[in-house]
Design a protein around this nucleic acid. Structure first.
Lengths: 191, 191
DNA sequence: AGTCGTTATGTACATTTGTACATAACGACT
DNA sequence: AGTCGTTATGTACAAATGTACATAACGACT
């Protein structure tokens, strides 16, 4: 017998678990990160979310729909982090530093985000609706970068960020930060 | 009743299907490209290879072993293509052109290779033995590039190739070749 | 209190999938 | 011709999985 959380004083208690749908979506990402899309089953996700099996099929008509929503929230959250990091930046020199930090830092570079990105990319080359998700994601990155760099440089920089993050994540001997700094400088030009 | 292929004159007919193991491996890549690792089952692969189900479990003790061998051959074949393209190159200017052609051309950029790469990357961040495959792959790329560029430039260029190929494959509006040329030039320096 | 729509739970069933195995075909060798 | 090790085939079975559904709990509203 588990005690139910107390309702806020005076506030109408709408439902027992209001954001269960979002919780299921988050649990799906955990399962994909651990077992891959190949190992993402209704039962594993339900267990991870601490929720009954029937609840999944109620909220999501298919596994594809569930994965679609999960990856969409992932892309939005990552893009939000990207935006936030670039929003605090004043001039181009600071933008340069921010980009280097993004590549070497935690937002783009932790293994969980990277493996989920790969799974998303693989899915996106196969499912057109997921292509829209990756397109929107990349577009937001370019908008954030476009505030400081010209359009062509922005395209190059965006691709460089992708490649450097990937190689840093996959490589056993991660590239030193100084090399990342030098690569960014070569693309965006001398200060 | 299907007629059996005639044995070569005088040559001892060793076995009915000598490279069935390799054929199964190739069929596995086809299935992964079409349905993802998630949809790669013994039965689908057997059907694609035109081979009985039992033959798969005979040649490969597990699906992981089969996928491991399939991705290993993929990585080797792609690296061979990379080597071949760079081997025909004389000076650094030609190397620059070769790199641009690799990014915009067919070796790295067809959607089949890209989706398989993503699946491999996703697998590699989860399975240590696959990490060795991707490591060897990237090491060969760097060796091929290292004949023409200094070590640090090679690292940068390798990452740039990865990122540009990926963005060209995923983007609905592919980046123009001139932008690719400009990006490579910024990394490797003025001619 | 009573009713209704929404959400949650557990169970049951048909299909898919990995796996094991018995049997046979094949080639090499004596 | 006979024997043996290797390879191929088909089938069978148990576990896992997607899916449907009956039942109940919950909150909002009258």
């Amino acid at each position: 017998m588990r005690a139910r959380p107390e309702p806020a004083e005076g506030k109408p208690r709408r439902r027992y678990d209001p954001d269960r749908r979002a919780n299921i979506s988050a649990a799906a990402l955990d399962v994909v990160a651990k077992h891959g899309v190949a190992g993402a089953t209704y039962r594993k996700i339900a267990e991870r979310a601490g929720v009954s099996l029937g609840s999944l099929t109620y909220h999501f008509e298919s596994l594809d729909e569930l994965l679609g929503e999960a990856f969409t929230t992932l892309a939005n959250r990552t893009a939000n982090g990207f935006d936030a990091a670039m929003a605090e930046v004043g001039d181009e020199a600071a933008a340069r530093d921010a980009v280097v930090s993004l590549i070497t830092g935690e937002l783009l570079n932790d293994s969980r985000t990277m493996v989920l990105s790969y799974e998303l990319y693989a899915l996106a080359t196969r499912r057109p609706d997921m292509r829209r998700v990756t397109d929107a994601w990349m577009a937001r990155s370019r908008v954030a970068l476009g505030k400081f760099f010209d359009p062509e440089t922005t395209l190059m920089l965006d691709a460089l960020i992708e490649g450097l993050s990937m190689h840093r994540a996959l490589s056993l001997a991660p590239m030193p930060r100084t090399t990342v700094e030098a690569a960014v400088e070569r693309i965006v030009g001398k200060p």
